[in-house]
Simulated scan of single mutants.
Amino acid sequence: MHLPSRQLIVRTAVAGVAALTLAGCASIQNQRGYLVDEVLVASVQPGLDNRESVQGTLGRPTMQSQFGDPVWYYISSRTEQAPFTRPRIAGHTVLAIRYDERGNVLSVERSGMERVVRLDPDGRETPTLGRNRTFLQDLFGNIGQVGAAGMGGSGAPPR
């Protein structure tokens, strides 16, 4: 009688660990930015809407153009990440609403994953302009420079 209860406990523990392991393998989804509502987006019409009506319908934009024609951008991105891997972009939408000088909607344009570019950095170093110096040159390079002209010293030449 004592042996079957011990086997039951072991089997239950193994089943619990297996369930937790499988649950940990599920990918993590993350939504960032504007939550796209297709009905609201479809209601914005060029020639009928203006900045106030668009802000009342869609809310404040994610960002606005700083130069050139006035454009409001609503940006949405969804990523997925399996355990122990890098996140990958699963969905991306940019809604661009262009306005005329009076604030009326000129056009509503939408782009998606076709415009997403993955950039890989070149190695683990950031190239910089200037001299290539070693750690010791950086560490000891300023010895004798304290008090020199232009560095907080008197600026007068030595006598």
Rank of each mutant, 00 (worst) to 15 (best):
T93G: 05
N104A: 08
A148E: 10
F135K: 06
V108E: 03
D100M: 08
G153W: 00
V71Y: 02
G24Q: 09
G59V: 02
M113Y: 06
W72I: 00
L139C: 12
S77V: 02
I97M: 01
G68N: 01
V108T: 07
G112S: 13
R6L: 15
Q55L: 12
R88E: 06
A19Q: 11
L136M: 12
R88G: 04
R124L: 08
T62M: 00
C25Y: 13
G91H: 08
S77D: 01
A18M: 15
A156H: 07
T126R: 08
R159W: 13
S53R: 13
L35M: 14
T128D: 10
S111A: 12
L119H: 03
E80H: 11
P61V: 08
Q29R: 12
L8A: 15
V17T: 08
Q137G: 07
R32C: 09
V108P: 05
R133S: 09
S111K: 14
E114Q: 09
G144W: 00
I75R: 05
D49C: 10
R11A: 15
H92I: 00
R6M: 13
L129R: 12
P70K: 00
I75K: 06
Y74W: 01
L95N: 02
L8V: 15
V14Q: 01
G147C: 02
L136G: 06
Q66W: 00
